[in-house]
């Protein structure tokens, strides 16, 4: 860490509230791209070492042998107004990362699940993980060149989404498109959390 850069990496003094959102999806669906497109800082990467039994390795000398596996997460940040910072964590959705998910989901406001229409079934695991953590979520189809285009109803049915779960299309390489996908999620979280108003 170059201390000359330190002044550029810190949060403004007025920021006191952090919001965590997960950008989840299967291998190579565009999680890192999405986070990088939106982040105001150069995205950072952290690694967590899990034991085979699923517990995070909790000390600096933790044996990194065959019984441990390393999970990488990219994340970025967006400062909102004067007092809030939004953190976006790109997280892999394989079932074997379940222990890591418990930790990630704690305190998270919700998740945006990225899917690729050429392999929708690759997203089943991650939808399952997010639901089991009780996290509200929206789904974004990350549009890849040459990937099949299905009617929304077919994607919904294949992914077994509730009618109330938002489904959008995005291009993780495009800023406005990625912002729109995130807006869809936050709008959904707000609707889920606001007191229901019945006339």
């Amino acid at each position: 860490m170059d201390s000359a850069l330190a002044s550029e990496i810190h949060l403004p003094d007025t920021v006191r509230t952090a919001v965590k959102l997960l950008i989840a999806g299967p291998f190579a669906v565009g999680k890192t791209t999405f986070v990088g497109t939106l982040s105001e800082i150069r995205p950072l990467r952290t690694e967590e070492t899990m034991t085979q039994a699923g517990a995070p390795v909790d000390d600096l000398t933790g044996a990194r042998d065959k019984t441990t596996t390393t999970v990488a997460m990219d994340f970025g940040r967006i400062t909102i107004g004067e007092r809030i910072v939004l953190y976006l964590f790109g997280v892999p959705g394989q079932q074997r990362f379940t222990p890591l998910w418990k930790d990630l989901a704690r305190g998270a406001y919700g998740a945006l699940i990225l899917v690729d229409t050429s392999r929708l079934e690759a997203s089943f695991d991650v939808i399952d993980l997010v639901e089991r953590q009780g996290l509200p979520y929206a789904v974004a189809v990350n549009r890849f060149d040459g990937a099949p285009v299905f009617p929304e109803s077919e994607v919904r049915e294949a992914l077994d989404l509730l009618p109330s779960t938002p489904l959008v299309t995005c291009d993780a390489r495009d800023h406005a498109s990625s912002v729109r996908a995130l807006i869809t999620l936050v709008h959904h979280l707000l609707a889920a959390d606001a007191p229901q108003e019945h006339a």
Binding site: M1, I9, H10, L11, A18, T46, T49, V85, Y87
Partner: peptide
């Protein structure tokens, strides 16, 4: 010189989160 999240500290210093 200022505030950071636990995740950013881990990322900048290449330390595991736990």
């Amino acid at each position: 010189d200022g505030a950071l999240s636990v995740a950013e500290i881990a990322g900048h210093l290449a330390l595991p989160i736990s």
